[in-house]
Amino acid sequence: MNILRLAGDMTHLISVIVLLLKIHSIKSCAGISLKTQELYALVFVSRYLNIFTDFISLYNTIMKLIFLGTSFSIVWYMRYHKIVRRSYDKDQDTFRHYFLVLPCLILALLINERFTFKEIMWTFSLYLEAVAILPQLVLLQRTKNTDNLTVQYIFLLGAYRALYILNWIYRYFTEPDYLHWITWISGLVQTILYGDFFYYYFLSWKNNVKLQLPA
């Protein structure tokens, strides 16, 4: 495993920890989209169907368990925790996330590397992950006072994808037959969706003001 891939995984892990820390310590999920979190839980379930059948490494298995466990606990907190759920911006988080699921499933059935159940679910998870951030970005745009942790969480998620792209470039040049167009294109689409956010993130950082996306 190369350093870019490890950095990408760690950034992803830290993003989840930041979010859980926010929820757990200040008992608030204000500014966080439940729609996006539910999509991520679905992404991990459909991607990690191979968790008990294909052993890759201990690292791989543990990380999969962490991502599955944390994504479900975040959804649980936001839906059922008696204090946390009160801070959920339900009226603002109105993105029809179900409309993202079906097109991704159809696309996975049409464009995949192998027509097997596990492979289609894996491909579906890639397509879904690419667009799962959309409800969160919409909510961010609508929220007037976004707290710092929410902004850091989104930034870390975007950074994780950007690092994965660098990892793919590195692997393409160092490993023979390393060619994964579906993964690359969905990862690229996902990173592009963060483009706007990154632009305003750096502006707010440069000018030392709170980030607020223009409506």
């Binding site: 294909d54 999969k64 991502f67």
Partner: peptide, 10 residues
């Protein structure tokens, strides 16, 4: 049997 692809990334 080349039905399964190995996915080593998360």
């Amino acid at each position: 049997e080349d039905d399964e692809l190995s996915h080593d990334e998360l």
